[in-house]
Simulated assay, not measured.
Amino acid sequence: MSNKSKIQRLILYRIALIHFKSMGFQRIFSYNIAGEVGVSPEQVRKDFSEFNIRGNKKAGYEISELLSNFDRIFQKDKTHHVILVGMGNIGSALANYQGFRNSGIFIKAAFDKDITRAKGDVVVPLYPLENLSNFVKSNRVKIAILAVPFEAAQSVANLLIDSGIKGIMNFTYANLRVPDDVYVKYVSLTNTLESLIFLTNQNDSEE
């Protein structure tokens, strides 16, 4: 099973634990988590064991302790700085999104070829694109959010990689060509909605 699948399961486990805690549960068993996420109890225990998370056969797991372990796994106890490139509608919205801070993620700076493109008041420092390389190197930033136009995506990605970026959250439609040691996470609201439309229409046609 790929690391990507494992990470996705861990995220779902954490969401399930938060849900159970909100309902007043203090302890939980692997089969409770498995039923919520849609995997087997054996898979839950196997994933937990890889991170040295141990339960009690009779008493299960303490939810608060599990959540603390997940905070450790996802390094939520640390501050993570990222940069944002592209200040159109999506970039401007992301720059002002306060939810990142709840996970210890801070957009340290935003960049654009034309800084006048920013929509509304921007709460993060905004710099011209030519300042990006020096900023990344001097601040040792490793992750970037990419929200530039499609035609600029690969060239900006190349600039990010040459500057030392190792992880890119890609909000463009471009299929980026990157070295093996650079990770790309593709985010497309349109593609997600199109997939849902296809699936729901397919179900309707089968009825």
Rank of each mutant, 00 (worst) to 15 (best):
N3H: 14
N3M: 14
K4G: 09
K6P: 01
K6L: 11
I7G: 11
Y13W: 11
I15W: 03
I15S: 12
H19L: 11
F20G: 03
F20W: 04
F20R: 00
F25P: 01
Q26I: 04
Q26M: 09
Q26E: 12
F29T: 10
Y31R: 01
N32V: 05
N32G: 03
I33M: 06
A34Q: 03
G35P: 00
V37L: 00
V37H: 00
V37T: 06
G38V: 05
S40N: 07
S40R: 03
P41K: 01
Q43V: 05
Q43M: 01
V44S: 02
S49G: 02
S49Q: 04
Y61N: 11
E62P: 02
I63E: 08
S64E: 05
L66H: 03
L67F: 01
D71Y: 05
Q75R: 10
D77C: 02
T79M: 06
V82C: 08
L84V: 10
L84Q: 12
L84N: 08
V85Y: 05
G86S: 02
I90Y: 02
A93V: 10
L94Y: 12
A95S: 12
Y97K: 12
G99Q: 06
N102F: 05
S103K: 05
G104V: 01
I105L: 02
F106A: 02
A109Y: 09
F111D: 03
D112G: 00
D114R: 08
I115S: 08
I115G: 10
R117N: 10
A118L: 06
A118G: 15
A118M: 06
K119R: 12
D121M: 03
V124P: 12
P125T: 08
P128H: 13
E130N: 15
N131P: 04
S133R: 11
K137C: 09
V141K: 03
V141L: 07
A144S: 15
I145V: 15
I145T: 10
A147W: 00
S155M: 14
S155N: 15
A157M: 13
L160N: 13
L160M: 14
G167E: 15
I168H: 14
Y173S: 14
L176A: 04
L176K: 05
V178D: 06
P179I: 08
P179Y: 03
D180W: 07
D180T: 11
D181V: 05
Y183V: 12
V184H: 01
Y186E: 06
Y186R: 12
V187I: 01
V187G: 00
T190I: 05
L193E: 12
E194F: 09
L196V: 09
I197H: 06
I197L: 12
I197S: 04
T200N: 09
T200Q: 03
Q202F: 14
Q202S: 14
N203Y: 13
E206D: 09
